[in-house]
Design a protein around this nucleic acid. Structure first.
Lengths: 339, 339
DNA sequence: TTGAAAGCGCTAACAA
DNA sequence: TTGTTAGCGCTTTCAA
């Protein structure tokens, strides 16, 4: 930058002012032009690191996601990245594998890198790490999952409406025995969807005995398969399954097949999320479409608003943005076999 | 850090030395302990930004990938992230969508952030952006794809061996008319696999007229479907298809179905990559498994070696690491129908 | 409208 | 073994 200033025949301070859009109006138009030309000529790229040191803003955001390898999260990450980069920010992505120790390590590393804020997709209902950080003034937006304390701005799909739509679809098809393979109850999505399932089943006039909820301990294919095995064993009368998410549904699909049951002829199945390739499964999965890209984009917007806006240290407060979801009916659901 | 030094009763320089593993042996053990205690007490996290400014090392690596939403890349990204973070580095991920302008923008933004090097998964055969940067001394390792100039260290799957295995599998099954739906010829993977296909078909004694190569212009489902339509039209005698990758294969699957053809009864199909859920397709896809996680990890190791090692500005030079692949036979391939 | 000067938090030569 | 000092590249008062 000293070189640029020299070439333009001005002081570095002037060069800095000229190059920075927000201060360039403080400098003579002709001078500014001269500086910009010089900068271009030298192929000058400002050192973001030095700027950060001075301004205490890194234009960098930490993004905590469970696992990029889970097809749910890439669209979220892209949504985040797109709005962040459009505003000159860079995302620092970290996978936590839902491992508390790993998460803490990565979180602190990102704080050491002076990120301006966090977008967190790994919230558990109890989450001291996040609570403490929030108390220290760290700016955190939650995406998808939330904590019980709920003192964070957050963006999520409308799980409640989605699960209701799923149950109503099944009930409308004539199912009178519907099980829910619930996600982990340590996560908000697990309990929200389970509660919505209970309520919807009741509304549909299905007795509790014929609408069992079996919790799993992870949103995985394997957990889904295990829960299905238990379900088949303990509730053979069931004709439909609402899975906590698509991975659990996929596990159910495998297990149904292993048990010699046809989906949807013997058992109907509804997933949740509409993740990539859910339409390629055998059979193509009926599921609740969640706009993951928009979830990411919206959470980034919320954080940006906080960082750039005048909302003060509390920013949007505990504002919740619920994005609409919709049931996508494919081939894994059908009317139950007569009798 | 001044606070830590004060609390420990030493100078900031001493505190710095004590806290930095590589210099802590320069300070009295007791003093070092005192400093560390003070740091812990104050919850001190060193400011990586300030350190970077001074040391000219950001411990940060730019990662350019086409699109995280393509199931190929998340495992690569995770592999990279895992070895990078294990060494105290952070990855800055950017999606380019194979768009040259976007790529240039993101690349320069990352350079502005003083990344120590790049891992690039978006190489085209002609790639002035990368060539110029390399000439300026930027440290870049290529993953998966390479450039024609080939002056970069790189890690890739053994495309040649993979394609040969695919063709031999099909020929072994009895196929005597095999088409290749080649990937974009502007990418190294597109030409390498196409060349390997040609050679393998020749070795298997299949005449050129019965082993057509139809290039696509993108590794996408849609491009695969279009190429398949053309194939069915122009080469109706073909009984097997080698796709340039799994997405192209998926497009072929769709198009075959649309044309009333059964896979594998009427046409056998082999993919490439063994991406997530290739085993869930209908039918489960026979494909060449590429170790994407290892590709990412290995490329990160190569870059780290360059950044930390004493290889000088040229580091590993144009070293190529080819990782072994293997054919995974599933249900999309079978012997051709008799007659 | 521009220049002078200080300083962000850290590290590295040099001196003691 | 520790302290002194300077400075990384930028921004931002303050003064001119």
């Amino acid at each position: 930058m000293a070189d640029v200033a020299d070439l333009a025949g001005v002081h570095t301070a002037t060069a800095s002012r000229a190059l920075n859009p927000s201060t360039s109006r403080l400098v003579n138009a002709a001078t500014a032009r001269r500086v910009r030309t010089a900068a271009e000529q030298l192929g000058f790229t400002p050192n973001t690191t030095a700027r950060s040191l001075r301004t205490k803003r890194s234009f960098t955001v930490g993004v905590l996601l469970p696992d990029l390898t889970n097809p749910l999260f890439p669209p979220v990450a892209r949504g985040i990245e797109e709005v962040l980069t459009a505003h000159g920010y860079t995302a620092l992505l970290a996978n936590t594998d839902n491992d508390e120790a790993k998460e803490r390590l990565r979180f602190e590393a990102l704080r050491g890198r002076q990120v301006d804020g966090f977008i967190v997709g790994t919230a558990r209902r109890k989450h001291p790490l996040l609570d403490d950080a929030r108390a220290e003034g760290v700016r955190i937006v939650l995406v998808n999952r939330t904590t019980d304390a709920g003192s964070f701005p957050r963006v999520a799909g409308d799980d409640d409406a989605g699960m209701r739509a799923a149950v109503e679809h099944l009930a409308g098809l004539g199912h009178r025995g519907i099980a829910h393979l619930a996600g982990p109850q340590v996560m908000s999505t697990g309990v929200t969807r389970a509660r919505a399932f209970r309520e919807a089943a009741t509304s549909a006039g299905i007795p509790v005995a014929r609408s069992p909820v079996l919790p799993t301990d992870a949103y995985t294919v394997q957990a889904g398969a295990e829960a299905t095995r238990e379900l088949l064993d303990r509730h053979p009368g069931i004709t439909a399954i609402c899975a906590g998410n698509d991975l659990i549904a996929l596990g159910a699909l495998h297990e149904l097949r292993a048990a010699g049951l046809d989906c949807p002829r013997d058992v109907s199945l509804v997933g949740f999320n509409d993740m990539l390739f859910a339409d390629e499964f055998q059979p193509p999965l009926t599921t609740v479409h969640v706009p993951h890209h928009a979830l990411g984009a919206e959470s980034a917007r919320l954080l940006l608003e906080w960082l750039e806006g005048d909302g003060g240290p509390d920013g949007p407060g505990a504002k919740t943005v619920l994005l609409p979801v919709r049931l996508v009916v494919r081939a894994s659901t059908a009317a139950p076999a007569a009798g």
